[in-house]
Design a protein around this nucleic acid. Structure first.
Lengths: 341, 341
DNA sequence: TTGTATGCGTTATCAT
DNA sequence: ATGATAACGCATACAA
């Protein structure tokens, strides 16, 4: 399907030098005379030569290829993580290989290819990463850096927001704003991030004498809408809600907004998670806990740096980055709903 | 940084067969005896062997690597395109190499690497692709498939929504809903998609006796907010607005929502573009023109298929996929704004 | 400074 | 069915 690229040998022939000289020229080796260099560059230009990186990978055992495993990009938070990660990796001269994974068995079809292309590391930004899936990645014998999957495992470098602490802060804040009947609208039951956020929230609430309602569903708009419909149908609906992520929060707002049957308490306080751009949109003004993804990415890249520098490293790392509460109207004055304030 | 992977030669030695037999076994070649096969598999298991794809690429001149060049993932439309593309490419046994490009000169640093890894094709989902940038990609001597960049160029396969037609339909629809003072809130002046959408809208409006106000800014939330602030400050503000994309529309809504000084006509009709999930959110209920990204991706992949199958192809292709108007409250009953309806 | 020779881990073409 | 052998395009140790 493709006309061959010129090789360094072709360039060497045309320039009248050896292939080694061409190689040296293109890697910026100093031991090349100016004359040779210019002859080489000229020939390369003429032949439209593009150095092939693949042999180098085989020889140096280093591809500068990093796999990014994602799933569920409908969440703008992960879209942002993906974009920032790609930019930062490019800055450190790495290329991103993208792998989308829906379910755990989807991993089976992707993993062989990742290893086949000899990626140097795998970064998982999966919202759901089970232990089995983590094992599959670790068995690549390649470092695995995982976002928001607090898992103790050899070969796994974990970077998370301090979800439990964030949950506590959400509880404190909602209570301080007058919330008395607390609820948590969460993600999948066994998701590690969900577990930690819920636990922190529930523990802090109980410590202050409140028993929160706890609910689970998808980490999505639809999941939020469903949970709101259930929770607010109660005779004693909550007046302060902490949502496992912003999409859940916005989905919940949608359910309240649309249903004339549901009449939530006024004011209704709400806090979300991730601080996606949409939280700041005028109709919402949602308070949210910002995950400092830039700091998280910093950590991930410094691990990667260490790996490249062959620094001795612990065989597993668990880093926690504190979340930051961003308060907006939804938790201060209460959520605005049409025809109700 | 990495312990070497076992090679097929290692496996061959342990299994007591030749390297060729190992190779054949792993490529599913039929000409391998069951005994040999099982010996090989056993040894491979033992050594945790992972076939290296790189030599194959060098020999076959085919990497099954497709570069996806993106920029501006804050637009959920492109996030969705990226996700779907990745999934579909994986289904056809290709791997995505991601490249983020902000500006045209960012392309300079990325292009050499894409060619270095010997990608088979480049898909550009850049919202902004200038002619110079397009040339750089084409000079890779690799097929370039471009989304929403209607450009006539050899080596460039263009797949766009029929933006001009969509612009016409937006004008017709807004007028039929009673709009009289039309406005277009657009993206960057020279962006091809912006040009086509605006032209279609303006031509159709004029054909029906209306002279629209035309405005340009970024294809973003902030761009929409700025344009709205300008446009609605007029003594005769528009009563029907077509926005170059949904983010612009939502940004415009934000400006209206927040400013007490702006009092737009009632009803105010609005139509956006892309039909991102947010348009359907309760506070907005924005009508929008759906880009059928699945159909667009279908086309892109079939081009790729043809390339892999070595089918004779025209040296440039321009495909248009019709947009589909999704009508919601914002263009039927008019936009809902707080305290004004 | 430059060139020669060898090797990286496969695939593909021959023989056998 | 199996094995030997020659590429693929580059990096590198070594010789000159």
């Amino acid at each position: 399907m493709r006309k061959h690229y010129a090789s360094s040998t072709d360039v060497a022939r045309l320039a009248g030098v050896s292939q080694s000289t061409v190689s040296r020229t293109f890697r910026g080796d100093t031991r090349v005379s100016p004359e040779a260099r210019s002859k080489v560059m000229e020939a390369a230009q003429e032949l439209d030569y593009r150095p092939n990186l693949l042999p180098r990978i085989m020889l140096t055992q280093q591809s500068r290829l990093v796999a990014l495993v994602i799933g569920g990009m409908h969440n703008p938070f992960y879209a942002r993580v993906l974009e920032r990660f790609t930019i930062r990796l490019q800055e450190m001269k790495c290329q991103v290989m993208l792998a989308h994974v829906d379910s755990d068995d989807a991993l089976d079809s992707v993993v062989p290819r990742l290893s086949g292309y000899r990626v140097d590391a795998v970064v998982s930004a999966l919202s759901v990463l089970t232990e089995a899936a983590a094992n599959q990645l670790i068995e690549l014998r390649v470092p695995v850096i995982s976002f928001n999957t607090h898992m103790r495992k050899k070969g796994l470098y974990t970077i998370s927001c301090d979800n439990q602490q964030a949950g506590r802060e959400a509880a404190r804040h909602l209570i301080s704003q007058g919330g008395r009947r607390l609820a948590y609208l969460g993600g999948p039951e066994h998701n590690p991030a969900n577990i930690d956020r819920r636990r922190g929230f529930a523990e802090e609430a109980r410590a202050r004498g409140f028993e929160p309602v706890l609910s689970n569903d998808e980490f999505s708009f639809a999941g939020g809408a469903r949970q709101a419909a259930r929770i607010f149908a109660s005779a004693t609906p909550p007046d302060a809600v902490f949502c496992g992520n912003d999409l859940i929060a916005i989905g919940a707002v949608d359910a309240l907004w649309r249903s004339s049957e549901i009449t939530p308490p006024q004011p209704l306080r709400m806090v979300g998670f991730d601080d996606i751009p949409q939280t700041a949109w005028a109709p919402y003004e949602l308070s949210s806990i910002l995950q400092d993804e830039e700091a998280m990415i910093d950590r991930a890249l410094s691990i990667l740096d260490d790996l490249y520098a062959d620094v001795d490293m612990p065989d597993r790392v668990e880093l926690l980055v504190p979340g930051k509460m961003i308060t907006r109207r939804s938790s201060l004055n209460g959520l605005q709903l049409p025809g109700r304030n």
